[in-house]
Nucleic acid binder design. Structure first.
Lengths: 155, 155
DNA sequence: CCACTTGGTCAATCTTGCTTTACTAAATGA
DNA sequence: TCATTTAGTAAAGCAAGATTGACCAAGTGG
């Protein structure tokens, strides 16, 4: 009897938690998205840490230190990320006109092109998810996720 | 004009994608869950790879090689994970009665206790999310995520 | 003018989560 | 019985993503 209850509890706990579903779904989407990016030989490959940088960039250019703060990592870590993305041709460092020490991280000439290409992969996956879920649940998912993020980030 | 359109496109792309929301929400939940687990000095700390092992364990005991297959990693990788979780007091290796070479990975005496403790952290977070979303959206999120995982795993 | 702070870089190192290579011991079967 | 397969372990190493510490050059304030 005891045994049986334990088993049920255990099996239920395995699936029931939204937190676990969220972690798993996030991981799967991440894998799928990165798998789609073609390799450019000679240049560093796009990795999750690079894509994590993108949402923090402003079109007008962003100080490296500001990026570090937004990402919650050290400036050195960002230096490495920006180095990579410079080598990929996505970003560029330009001197900050208002402070001779500072540099602004901006999109390179064809950065937006590459970026939009990346967005297309995400859009593709979105489309696949929408097809699997149907428009209603896809919309519901989108709004629920936004609320989750707001709740978790606003701590 | 051009400039303005680019900016809008860019800013919209930053948020609009469900894929991105999913990745971000997953990351945030993960961080929050791990932050809640108290450190037990002297023993290895619980890390994401450990928690990834748990859903693949059967109550009756599971062969190490089977775990490796389910996780999609080498047996050596699982050996290391099980080593850690043995040191934490969560799991135990017992000889497989049907094969002298094999070992069964089972929960240690107080393994279920520790495990349920972990589940409680997840349940807590679930509760917080439910509170933030309201019961309707929380349920919708759960069902949508299950569908996403099914779609992505069934490839 | 000089001390100090600030923005960024360089180099070395650490942790995580794996892998490859090499090995031991038990099972299997011609 | 003896060669081969199978279950697991041990040790070393690697790539990713960070960190710490030492540094330089440009601003800033007494």
């Amino acid at each position: 009897m005891e045994e049986r209850v334990a088993k049920e509890t255990f099996e239920a706990a395995k699936r029931a938690s939204v937190s676990q579903l969220l972690m798993k779904a996030g991981r799967l989407v991440n894998e799928r998205a990165l798998a789609r990016v073609p390799e450019a030989p000679g240049r560093p490959r796009l990795r999750p840490s690079h894509t994590a940088l993108l949402p923090h960039l402003d079109l007008e250019g962003t100080r490296l230190g500001v990026l570090a703060e937004r990402l919650g990592v050290t400036k050195q870590a960002v230096t490495q990320l920006v180095d990579d993305m410079e080598a990929m041709g996505v970003l560029e460092r330009v001197p900050d006109p208002t402070d001779g020490r500072a540099k602004l991280v901006v999109f390179a000439d064809d950065g937006p092109t590459l970026l939009m290409q990346g967005m297309r992969y995400l859009a593709e996956i979105d489309g696949e998810l929408a097809a699997a879920l149907g428009p209603r649940r896809h919309a519901a998912l989108s709004s629920a996720l936004a609320a989750v993020i707001a709740a978790l980030e606003g701590e």
